[in-house]
């Protein structure tokens, strides 16, 4: 395993150097189109269409590229993507290096994240009040990494719920998320020695409809009166409906999303909010698993590299040297 790890890592470094070598020539092909997250703010209202939407987006994207007519290159390596290839390899190498370092058992520090510190208190409160906990994993399908991050946090919340003997309710919009969540919760409860607390009926599917799901979760909050609500995952316009209804029922609420357009609403209506990347750090924070801590450290190092690129690029840009085309 260690040998394989080392091979992959060295392979990535070599490939990285090879790609970097070809980057300047490839960069010349790249159009300097300025882009941003345009439309995200308005698009959030649209129904999140789950798997088919994401797949179709990809197909549409591929289609439009094909329709574009002029293709910069063909063959095994599309040089138009050289900067992305370099970034992918570099990021992968940094991540693998720190995961490998974490194997040595060196303790790694992670700063306090208020929303996650409150998980114990929130679960404890539900136990004291004799009320359940509600967990919503957001609207995105299982394939989206925000949902994977949410499921990881769910595992930790379920463990605590098991330790405190508190019921956990989880309405789902996606059937695959439901099946995975059932498995994760059952495993968490087994690990804390309380498999008897597992009830598959409490982790159920509602509907694919965005607002149908919102209606069902609101109904559950008003009838079951959970003492604690977790909204962790990717949310769309329904975020405020859920958070405000939860607020009206007097629940303590912990939210976490990577959707920048929904963060303001969660911040206003919830007690604690995991902002953007904190969602991805959440499961590492709760589990303290060395390998994942190593990956988080690698993520921070990659961030530091980006900051250096950003500041150096800005200084050069002030003096008329544009390194933008080298970034894709």
């Amino acid at each position: 395993m260690r040998m394989a790890f080392r091979t992959v890592w060295y392979g990535l470094l070599v490939a990285c150097l090879a790609c970097a070598w070809s980057a300047p020539s490839a960069a010349a092909h790249v159009a300097h189109a300025d882009s941003l997250d345009g439309g995200a703010q308005e698009a959030e209202g649209a129904e999140a269409q789950g798997v088919s939407a994401s797949s179709e987006e990809v197909l549409d994207g591929a289609g439009s590229e094909a329709e574009g007519g002029e293709t910069p290159s063909t063959g095994w390596f599309d040089t138009e993507h050289t900067p992305t290839a370099v970034a992918t390899l570099l990021f992968g190498a940094i991540l693998l290096f720190f995961i490998r370092s974490a194997r040595s058992g060196k303790p790694l520090f992670i700063r306090r994240i208020a929303g996650l510190e409150a998980v114990d208190e929130a679960v404890g409160r539900a136990t004291e009040m004799g009320r359940p906990i509600l967990y919503s994993p957001g609207l995105d399908p299982m394939e989206e990494v925000a949902t994977v991050a949410s499921i990881n946090i769910l595992g930790q919340v379920a463990r605590k719920a098991g330790e405190y003997e508190t019921r956990l309710i989880m309405p789902n919009r996606d059937p695959i998320v439901m099946t995975v969540a059932q498995e994760v919760v059952r495993e968490a409860l087994t690990q804390v020695g309380r498999p008897d607390l597992y009830n598959a009926d409490d982790i159920y599917y509602t509907t694919q409809s965005q607002f149908g799901y919102a209606a069902a979760v609101c109904g559950t909050m008003m009838r079951e009166r959970p003492a604690t609500n977790f909204f962790i995952g990717h949310f769309y316009a329904e975020s405020l409906i859920l958070a405000e209804t939860g607020n009206a029922t007097g629940a303590i609420q912990i939210a976490g999303t990577d959707s920048d357009s929904q963060l303001p609403f969660f911040i206003c209506a919830c007690d604690y909010t995991l902002i953007g990347e904190e969602l991805y750090a959440g499961s590492v924070y709760l589990s303290r698993e060395p390998l994942l801590l190593g990956a988080l450290k690698g993520q921070d190092v990659a961030k530091a590299v980006l900051l250096v690129v950003l500041i150096a690029g800005a200084i050069l840009a002030f003096f008329g040297i544009d390194i933008g085309p080298y970034l894709g």
Partner: peptide, 12 residues
């Protein structure tokens, strides 16, 4: 990458 690039300021 695109977001980093778009944050670069214009030339003085």
């Amino acid at each position: 990458l695109i977001q980093i690039r778009s944050t670069f300021p214009p030339s003085l």
